[in-house]
């Protein structure tokens, strides 16, 4: 049911850059409605940048991101853990409750019914009993679980995850993967940046292999080949600090 209304993301000749050096270079393609895609590639290949570009945290230098079936402020976005201030004195309950932002906004109080929803989300990620813990005292895995509770509460049709399993133990990784697969099964569109090739191969149906440019994009088995991986490495190394102006039409 949800599948028909699932959002898609279309990229048209998209270039995103930092200080004029492109991190994502002339990328075109579509994340189909209800698809579940891994973005894989070497460090500095523009994976996180692409997610930020889709969310709107970075403005395109040229080209376009078109969202179909969803508003830009309704994306469920999980930033890299390093982008968050974990020393900030917040409780687990507060972090999860941020997921109600669209419903509660800046002002409204969080009622008993919504509090129940927060409790349920914390239970779903296995954090029952941690409500009043300060986030600085959590392990990396527990903290990531809290962020997943927030995503559950956001309840959006498009979910973008930036390295959700970095520095996380195998059991937590398995639990979170199950949640993500569940979102896919419900017909949501899911895009996740990943570093672990085994997880990509075994668990994610589609892959975008990125090395600033698109190396390959499609069913994982066709994308993750030795030839493509070698090409990704080669493309990535070919970029220079003192590059000349790109002459490709914007």
């Amino acid at each position: 049911m949800l599948k028909r209304t699932a959002p898609s993301i279309q990229l048209d000749n998209l270039t995103l850059s930092y200080r004029r050096h492109p991190a994502v270079h002339h990328l075109s393609g579509t994340f189909q409605p209800g698809s579940f895609t891994a973005i894989f590639g070497p460090n500095g290949a523009g994976k996180s940048t692409l997610l930020k570009g889709i969310v709107g945290l970075i403005k395109p230098d040229s080209g376009r991101v078109t969202l179909d079936g969803i508003r830009r402020d309704d994306i469920g976005y999980l930033p890299q853990q390093s982008a968050l201030d974990r020393s900030f004195p917040m409780r687990v309950l507060d972090v999860a409750a941020m997921g109600l932002w669209r419903k509660a906004g800046i002002f409204s109080a969080i009622g008993r019914k919504q509090l129940g929803a927060v409790e349920a989300a914390l239970e779903a990620v296995g954090l029952t009993g941690f409500e009043d813990r300060i986030i600085g005292t959590l392990s990396g895995g527990q903290f990531q679980r809290a962020l997943f509770a927030r995503l559950l509460l956001q309840d959006t049709k498009l979910i973008l995850l930036d390295e959700p399993f970095t520095a996380i133990d195998a059991r937590t990784c398995e639990d979170l993967l199950a949640l993500i697969s569940g979102w896919h099964a419900e017909g949501r569109t899911v895009v996740t940046v990943l570093h672990d090739l085994d997880i990509v191969r075994e668990r994610i149906p589609e892959t975008l292999l990125l090395a600033r440019e698109k190396v390959a994009w499609g069913p994982t088995a066709e994308v993750i080949t030795d030839a493509n991986l070698a090409r990704a490495r080669h493309l990535h190394e070919a970029f220079e600090d003192n590059a000349e102006l790109c002459e490709m039409p914007a």
């Binding site: 969310v55 402020d73 917040m90 932002w101």
Partner: peptide, 10 residues
């Protein structure tokens, strides 16, 4: 303070 990326995304 805690998560500027999240705030921007919503």
């Amino acid at each position: 303070c805690f998560d500027p990326g999240f705030l921007k995304s919503v």
